[in-house]
Design a protein around this nucleic acid. Structure first.
Length: 741
DNA sequence: CTAGGGTTAG
C-alpha cells in the first residue's frame, strides 16, 4: 500500500471501521469522511483503486452515498474510466439514484452511447430508483446521438407523465433529440410548449432547423427572438452563420457579421471559425482572409476552413500553401484537401494526397479519409487500390459504419465487381437507406434491373423507408434494363405510397425509360404534364432517345430547350449533329459544326483508362504518348486484321462528325480511346482469367461496342467497359446490356 | 450530502 494512504488507525474514533459497519444503511452521512475527501483530490486511477480498496476494507463502500462518490470520480472526473466505473457499479448492492445518473451520464458521452439506453432500461427493471430530471437529459441525448426515434418517443412519453415534465433541461434535450431525428415538426411542438424558454431552447431549435435543412425557418426563428426580447448569444450566431453558409447568402452573412460586432456578442474561437466558414462557403475568400489575419487565436479548424475556402474558388495551390503553413496538420486538414480534390473531379490528385498522408505518418486516416479515397477509386475505376483500402479497413479493425459501407459498395460496383459489392452488402447487419440505395445503384449500372427491383422489396421488408436517391437508382435500373412497365409503376407509386415527391431528376429518368424504349410521344407527354419546369437533364434524356431512334423533329425541339438552359453543353451539339448525320442531313451537320466553332465550343475528348498493377493508364483518342505506344498500335493492327477476317465491317456512321480533320474519320474510329485501352489490356495482363477493366468518360460508340464483343470471343477474354452511364460486360461475343444502351 | 442542456472543419 502506498505511503500516501491513510491507515485505519488514522481514522477518528467515531468513524472507525466498527462504527462504520454498524452504521451502514442508517441515517448517518459520510460526506466529510476523510477517504471521500481524498477521492476529490485523487489524480490517477491507481490512487482511485487504492481508495476503493480502503473503502471496501472498512465497509464504507456499503454506504450508498459513499459508493456514489466513488462512481462519480470513476465515471465523470478527468481521470474517469468507464469500464472501471461499470465494474464498481456492478458491486454496489443498492445503487442510489445518483450512482445511476452518474453512470448514465458517462455513457451518454462515451464512444458507445447505445449503452446509455441499456443502463436506463436496467434501471427501470431494477425498480429501486425512478429516473429524475438529472437522468432524462442524458438518456435523451444518447437517443439523439444514435437517432433512436422510437426509444426517444418512449422517453418523451415517460417524461410527460413524470415530475420532470416541466424541467427546462429535459425539454431542451427533447427539442435537440427530435431535431436530430429529422422530426422538425415534433421538435418545434416541444419548443412551442416550453413555458419559460431560455436561450438554450432557442439555440437548440435554430440549430435543429439548420441541421435539418430548414434554413429559412431557422432565420425566421432568429428574427423572432427580438419580439420575445430574447438576446442572442454567441452560440445563436454560430447557428445563424451556419444557415447563411448553407444558403450561400453572402449578403446576409455580412449582415450577421456586423450584427455580431454591433451587439457586442462575445467573441470566441468557435464563433470566429463559424464566420470564417460562412465566408469560405459563400466564396468570399477575401473576407475570410481579412478575418483570419485578425484572429488572435486560431486552431486547426480555422486553418482547415481556409483550405476549404481556397478550394471553393478553385485555387488549389493556395489551399496547398495554407496546408503547408499550418502548425499541425491533423487528419481533418488532410481530409479537407483530399475531399476537395475528390469532389472537384480531381480523383488522381485525391489519391496522390492520400498516399502522401500515408507516407508522412503524421496523421492516421480515419473513416472520412477512407470514404473520400474510396470515392476517388470509384471515379477512376481503380479497383486494386480500392480493394487495398478494403483490406486496410479490415486489418485496422475500423468499424464499417453505413457511410463506409456505402462507399465500399459504390467503389466495387463502379469498378465492375458486383459480387464483391454484394459481399460487403451482406456482411453487415445494419443497413440504412443509403446502403440499400447504393446496392440498388450497383445492380442498375450492371443492367440487373430485376435484381434491383427485388432488392427494393427486401428493403421494404426490412422497414427502411426509401428516399429520393433510392428512386433515382431504381428508375435508372429500369431504364438500363428496358423495364418500361416496372419503371412507370414505380414512378406512379413514389408520392402516394412512399411520400417522395418526384423531382426533376426522377422525371428525367422516366423520360429516359420511355424514350429509350421508343415511346417518344409518351415521353413528350410526360414533359408537357410536369408540375416543375423540366431541367437540362430532362431535355438531355429526350435528345439521347431521339438519337437512338433517329427522330429529327423532336430532337431539334429538345436540343433548343436544352441549349436555352445550358448554352455551353457540347454534348447537345454532338448528339444533334449525330442525329443529322444518321439521317443524311449533311448540310445541317456542317452548319452545326460552324456554329460550334464560332462559339469556341469543343467536344469533350473521349478518354479511357485501365488499371494495371495498381497504376492507372489513360488514353485519349489517337493517343500515342504512352511509353508502350508502338506495341499497343501493332496489337491494334493485329486485332483489326483478325476482326476483318471474322467479317467485321467498321460502322462509320457512328463516327463523331465533329472531329477536326474530316478525312481521318475511319482512322479515328480505330483510334477510339477505349480500343487503345483494350489493346493495352490485352498485352499487359498475363492472367487471362482476369477480366480487362476499362473506364470511359463518354458513352461507348456502336463500333467500339461491336469490336469489344468480337474481341471477347476471338481472344476469349472478358472485358468490362464502364461508360458514362453503365457497365458493359463482354463475354463470349455477347454483352450484358443485350445491345440496349 | 452530490449533478445538467445548445455551437464551428472533413
Amino acid at each position: 500500500m502506498a505511503s500516501s494512504c491513510i491507515s485505519i488507525s488514522d481514522l477518528p474514533p467515531e468513524i472507525h471501521p466498527s462504527s462504520v459497519t454498524a452504521n451502514v444503511n442508517s441515517d448517518r452521512y459520510f460526506a466529510n469522511h476523510p477517504l471521500l475527501l481524498q477521492l476529490d483530490k485523487c489524480s490517477d486511477v491507481r490512487r482511485l483503486k487504492e481508495i476503493h480498496a480502503q473503502m471496501l476494507r472498512i465497509g464504507l463502500f456499503n454506504d450508498s452515498y459513499a459508493a456514489s462518490k466513488l462512481i462519480q470520480v470513476a465515471a465523470l472526473s478527468d481521470i474517469s474510466s468507464l469500464s472501471y466505473a461499470q465494474k464498481v457499479f456492478d458491486q454496489i448492492p443498492q445503487p442510489n439514484l445518483y450512482s445511476w445518473n452518474a453512470l448514465i451520464r458517462s455513457y451518454s458521452s462515451s464512444e458507445e452511447p447505445v449503452n446509455t439506453l441499456s443502463m436506463f432500461v436496467r434501471m427501470l427493471y431494477d425498480g429501486a430508483e425512478l429516473p429524475n430530471k438529472f437522468t432524462y437529459p442524458f438518456v435523451i441525448k444518447a437517443a439523439a446521438l444514435i437517432s433512436a426515434l422510437r426509444f426517444g418517443r418512449g422517453l418523451h412519453a415517460m417524461v410527460v407523465k413524470s415530475e420532470s415534465a416541466t424541467d427546462l433541461f429535459v425539454l431542451n434535450a427533447l427539442v435537440h433529440f427530435y431535431a436530430e431525428c429529422k422530426c422538425l415538426d415534433a421538435a418545434y411542438q416541444v419548443f412551442l410548449n416550453i413555458p419559460n424558454r431560455d436561450i438554450v431552447s432557442w439555440n437548440s431549435m435554430i440549430m435543429g432547423f439548420v441541421h435539418g435543412g430548414y434554413v429559412e425557418e431557422s432565420l425566421d426563428l432568429f428574427r423572432g427572438m427580438e419580439g420575445e426580447s430574447m438576446k442572442p448569444n454567441d452560440v445563436t450566431m454560430v447557428g445563424v452563420l451556419s444557415a447563411c453558409a448553407k444558403k450561400l447568402d453572402l449578403e446576409f452573412g455580412r449582415f450577421v457579421h456586423s450584427y455580431i460586432r454591433r451587439h457586442g456578442i462575445k467573441e470566441s474561437l468557435i464563433l470566429n471559425n463559424a464566420i470564417l466558414d460562412m465566408y469560405a462557403k459563400c466564396g468570399s475568400i477575401k473576407d475570410a482572409e481579412t478575418l483570419f489575419d485578425e484572429m488572435k487565436e486560431k486552431d486547426t479548424i480555422s486553418w482547415t476552413t481556409m483550405i476549404v475556402g481556397y478550394t471553393r474558388v478553385g485555387d488549389f495551390d493556395a489551399a496547398r500553401s495554407v496546408f503547408s503553413a499550418m502548425p499541425c496538420q491533423d487528419i481533418g486538414a488532410w481530409n479537407a484537401l483530399i475531399s476537395a480534390y475528390e469532389q472537384n473531379g480531381k480523383p488522381k490528385e485525391a489519391l496522390a494526397t492520400f498516399s502522401e498522408l500515408q507516407q508522412s505518418k503524421e496523421a492516421e486516416p480515419d473513416s472520412v479519409t477512407l470514404v473520400c479515397a474510396l470515392s476517388a477509386c470509384a471515379q477512376l475505376g481503380a479497383i486494386d487500390l480500392g480493394s487495398w483500402i478494403h483490406v486496410y479497413i479490415k486489418k485496422r479493425h475500423i468499424k464499417l459504419n453505413c457511410h463506409l459501407t456505402t462507399s465500399l459498395i459504390d467503389m466495387y460496383s463502379k469498378c465492375g465487381d458486383l459480387e464483391k459489392a454484394l459481399e460487403v452488402f451482406h456482411s453487415i447487419e445494419y443497413r440504412d437507406v443509403f446502403v440499400w440505395s447504393a446496392m440498388i445503384a450497383g445492380f442498375a449500372m450492371h443492367g440487373c434491373g430485376k435484381e434491383a427491383i427485388e432488392l427494393f422489396s427486401k428493403m421494404q421488408e426490412a422497414k427502411v423507408n426509401p428516399n429520393s436517391v433510392t428512386f433515382t437508382n431504381l428508375l435508372s435500373a429500369c431504364s438500363h434494363s428496358g423495364l418500361v412497365g416496372d419503371g412507370k409503376a414505380i414512378f406512379k407509386q413514389m408520392e402516394p405510397v412512399f411520400g417522395v415527391v418526384p423531382e426533376v431528376k426522377h422525371y428525367a429518368c422516366l423520360v429516359d425509360i420511355l424514350g429509350r424504349a421508343g415511346n417518344l410521344e409518351e415521353a413528350v407527354a410526360v414533359i408537357d404534364k410536369m408540375p416543375v419546369s423540366p431541367g437540362a437533364s430532362v431535355w438531355g434524356a429526350l435528345l439521347a432517345a431521339c438519337k437512338l431512334h433517329g427522330n429529327v423533329a423532336i430532337a431539334e425541339q429538345a436540343c433548343n430547350n436544352l441549349l436555352e438552359l445550358e448554352p455551353d453543353n457540347d454534348g447537345a451539339y454532338v448528339l444533334l449533329s449525330n442525329i443529322y448525320a444518321k439521317s443524311g442531313k449533311w448540310d445541317k451537320v456542317s452548319a452545326l459544326r460552324n456554329l460550334m466553332r464560332g462559339s469556341g465550343l469543343k467536344k469533350e475528348p473521349g478518354c479511357s483508362s485501365i488499371e494495371i498493377d495498381g497504376v492507372i493508364h489513360e488514353f485519349l483518342v489517337g493517343d500515342n504518348s504512352h511509353p508502350q505506344s508502338v506495341k499497343i498500335y501493332s496489337k491494334l493492327d493485329e486485332v483489326a486484321a483478325r476482326l476483318k477476317s471474322a467479317g467485321h465491317v467498321p460502322k462509320t456512321s457512328q463516327v463523331l462528325q465533329l472531329v477536326e480533320e474530316e478525312d481521318v474519320q475511319e482512322q479515328a474510329l480505330n483510334l477510339h480511346s477505349e480500343k487503345l485501352a483494350i489493346a493495352f489490356g490485352l498485352i499487359s495482363t498475363t492472367n487471362s482469367a482476369q477480366p480487362i477493366r476499362v473506364m470511359k468518360n463518354l458513352r461507348v460508340c456502336h463500333d467500339c461496342h461491336a469490336v469489344a464483343k468480337l474481341i471477347s470471343k476471338l481472344y476469349d477474354r472478358e472485358i468490362l467497359l464502364r461508360d458514362r452511364y453503365r457497365f458493359h460486360h463482354f463475354k463470349g461475343g455477347h454483352c450484358s446490356c443485350k445491345d440496349y444502351w
